[in-house]
């Protein structure tokens, strides 16, 4: 999880001042998480099931 904390009440004075005066612009943008790993197991299991089901039913 990304924790965006710029104002910390317990921070020493210069750090609190830096956080206050350096605050980023408030202009959020969505970033959808990308899929990178090809999970072969579900596809393989589905294919195996399709192959076996008629025989199991028979």
């Amino acid at each position: 999880m990304l924790d965006q904390t710029t104002h910390r009440p317990d921070a020493p004075a210069p750090q609190a001042e830096a956080a206050r005066r350096g605050a980023l612009p408030d202009a959020p943008l969505a970033m959808p998480r990308q899929q990178l790993e090809r999970d072969l197991a579900p596809a393989f299991l589905a294919r195996l099931r399709a192959l076996l089901t008629p025989r199991l039913d028979a």
Partner: peptide, 19 residues
């Protein structure tokens, strides 16, 4: 950041999500 999740890539992602 109080948590440096994702290291540099996460740092930039955090900026883009905020600003």
């Amino acid at each position: 950041r109080s948590s440096n999740a994702g290291r540099k890539a996460g740092n930039i992602e955090d900026f883009l999500k905020t600003s």
